[in-house]
Amino acid sequence: MDAPKVKIYGLVAEFTTPTQIVDAANQAREAGYTAMEAYTPFPVVDLHEAVGFKRTMLPTLAFFGGLTGFCTAFSLETFTSGGAPSFITPFLPDWFYYPLNIGGRPLNSWPAFIPPEFELTVLFASITSVVGMLLLNGYPRIYHPLFNVPRFSMVTSDRFFLCIEARDSKFDLQGTKQFLEGLQPYEVSEVPE
């Protein structure tokens, strides 16, 4: 262990069952660690709470995404079809105002405008939730220090990893290593930056 000093991203402990990783995360959090993350091959229920994260704000984001979609479609259809009230129309640019009489239907044919409004609501909400999920998670990120640990590739198969990061104020290489080994992992390894 007296290799030349490389910058350390953190320490990672490997576990073999989901129960172990939940227990390990709970103990690490109770021990006062904050900058850590547990990696699993499939979602383990409420593990993020054990690690110390809160619920995601994604649903709220998606709600507002959907609202934006609805408003977009609503104004697009109403304004371009000339369905807006007369005190608004003078302020609309020419290219956004083209009233047409279609089969004698009113300019503001709001019932007929609802299907596209619905579609854009769904489209915008979906894009918000997918893009929001990826960006909040920091993806795409093709490279990550954890990939330097050879055994970490098993995280997508059947192994569970708890990584305590070096930026944690409580982190100290020896002490944290001892702590992790106390959790009876399969193996503990250093993650070079």
């Binding site: 995360a25 990696y39 993020h48 995601t56």
Partner: peptide, 10 residues
């Protein structure tokens, strides 16, 4: 670059 972090999964 998926890593499967608990918050990522959540």
């Amino acid at each position: 670059g998926w890593r499967g972090g608990s918050m990522h999964w959540h």
